[in-house]
Design a protein around this nucleic acid. Sequence first.
DNA 1: CTCCAGGGAGCCT
DNA 2: AGGCTCCATGGA
Length: 305
Amino acid sequence: MESGTIPLSSIPGPFDLQATLESGQTFLWTRADERTYLDPAPREGTDWYRTALDDQVVAVRQTGDALEWRATERDPTEALRDRLRLDDEMAQMLASLPDDPLIDAATAAFPGLRVVDEPFFPTLVSFILSAQMRVERIHSLVQSLGETYGQPLSFGEETVYAFPTPEELAAATERELRDLGLGYRAPYVLESAAMVADGTLSADDIRSLPYEEARTRATEFVGVGEKVADCVLLFSLGFTDPVPLDTWIRSAIEEYVPDIEVTTYRDTSRAIRERFGPYPGIAQTYVFHYLRHREALTAAGRAQQ
DNA sequence: CTCCAGGGAGCCT
DNA sequence: AGGCTCCATGGA
């Protein structure tokens, strides 16, 4: 077992591991203590979060002045920098966001939240599952897929499962996936996994296109409409434009930006991106996380007084 | 019991 | 193109 630290001083701008991994962008990490999302972290830093990363198990936690890591085979620092976008100049990017009351409140509530850059296929499947599903349950199902179809990797005395490859998942049956609890999404996952496995549509096919064309192309996957396509582009393909228009963001537009008429996805997206520029996806990710937790934040604020 | 969840497919006009 | 309806499942 290897171990080491990444000093927070080497990361430009604020960084918040818990907010980054528990804000519904990625469902590939698990908290070692199995507590639920956004339960308070221990005093001396966050809990350990684990994932399978490049054929080894990596665990990270954040302390007062560093990211500590443990890995079964080799130093994962470079991979962590890529996935958690540790090299982004966050202070500069946050300062460049428009001066808007909602964005200001969201960035102030969780400074250090970063938009992740996770692998394409697990992200595609995760957000196919996300249709009409709570964040916590998406996480539970993604973990179940790993435990059922993914490769086991030892982590000390414990076992961590990699997310299944397209081939491994495409070999499942609809009956099995329905028994796992995927419901009507089971055939969507199977068909899209087969499309990736046989090369019908790849991450590179989508990545190379201009944003709106990429979004349309991604909807060729089964179970992927414009909203899910936006999530995949934002959280796994490096696009900074997507503003996934889910129920939270749509209601936020009606409440905070009433002059934007919510019509078609394309036109609403264009209008909100104009307001959220120059990094609409980052602004959206902050706003989504803030909206889902602002009641708790308000309650905590009252408790402190 | 009802209602709802980071929506999308299929079918209708 | 835009508007319906149905879709599984679990938790509040």
